[in-house]
Design a binder for these strands. Structure first.
Lengths: 159, 159
DNA sequence: TATTGTTATACTCTATAACTATA
DNA sequence: TATAGTTATAGAGTATAACAATA
């Protein structure tokens, strides 16, 4: 029995995953501060990098964020010069969200940051162990039905 | 490029860990509802199971929860009949938190729940892969300096 | 009548500070 | 004076509902 008090679940997969995962997300969010954005803003930018433009409603659906909350998020990103709203021509109700040059630059920088973070997280593992870890995690993610780009922490509870 | 829009970070260790970890924590919290408690209450009960009694301040320190927030948490747990407050004899400022028979029963039930959840999470893995995953996760957890019982999601930002 | 974007309101969670009783 | 527990207040984040413009 250690000083902090051993727990029966300390070695469980569920606990280890959520503990390490929460810390990983925390580290990512902390380093994102240097670029003046939050995880949600990066989620938007990263998604737009793969599929641009998207309307606010489409972004809300894909990222699992409620459209009500998407308004203030896009407001801030527009203020920060990361995206622009363009009124849709075919459907004048929608706003098409386009990334700016600055927004695309931020995505590149943050992608490099993720690579760095990956290396730090995997520091105690051999190259072979690292490959195995990614492989096993992806199997679990697939089993849980997790979409490649949707992060439960970023997503709202209700959509 | 898939329908949801591929992202450059989808296969990163940092993203996979935080994504799978968040879902794991979500599943745990959801199933905990059946026992009428929240993750924080289980953290308290589980810690007491290994080291009883502890004062509110000690629990706050060990679990990374601010003592201000510990008050309402213990209030609720006392109302639910999971713990009892006993005024300290040596130091009459403190409350020693003791688990009740009911509280110990809940811990046993939730520990069984964690075992079930582990099996479900590891369903797509072989026994060998599961052992490897736990081993690698523990290496990363140690590397990050994570304490065996402290969950970043349960802990407050300031203590 | 349905949908997109928007706004307002309420509710939850937590951060900060201050209070009391004991030491 | 320092610490344990408590309470009050304010702030951030989010859920719900309702609105205007357009389809």
């Amino acid at each position: 029995m250690d000083e902090s008090g051993s727990t029966a679940f300390a070695g469980s997969i569920a606990f280890l995953l959520s503990q390490v995962g929460a810390r990983s997300a925390q580290l990512f969010a902390e380093r994102l501060v240097a670029y003046g954005i939050e995880p949600r803003a990066f989620a938007v930018l990263s998604n737009l990098a793969a599929h641009e433009p998207r309307t606010q409603q489409q972004l809300a659906d894909v990222l699992g964020i409620h459209r009500n909350n998407m308004v203030a998020l896009i407001d801030q990103m527009e203020t920060d010069g990361l995206v622009r709203r363009l009124r849709g021509v075919a459907d004048r109700r929608v706003f098409e969200i386009h990334t700016t040059h600055s927004g695309r630059h931020v995505v590149d920088q943050v992608n490099a940051l993720v690579t760095e973070l990956d290396q730090e997280l995997a520091a105690p593992l051999t190259a072979s162990q690292r490959t195995t870890l990614v492989h096993n995690l992806q199997k679990v993610a697939d089993h849980l039905g997790l979409a490649p780009a949707v992060h439960p922490h970023v997503a709202s509870q209700t959509r």
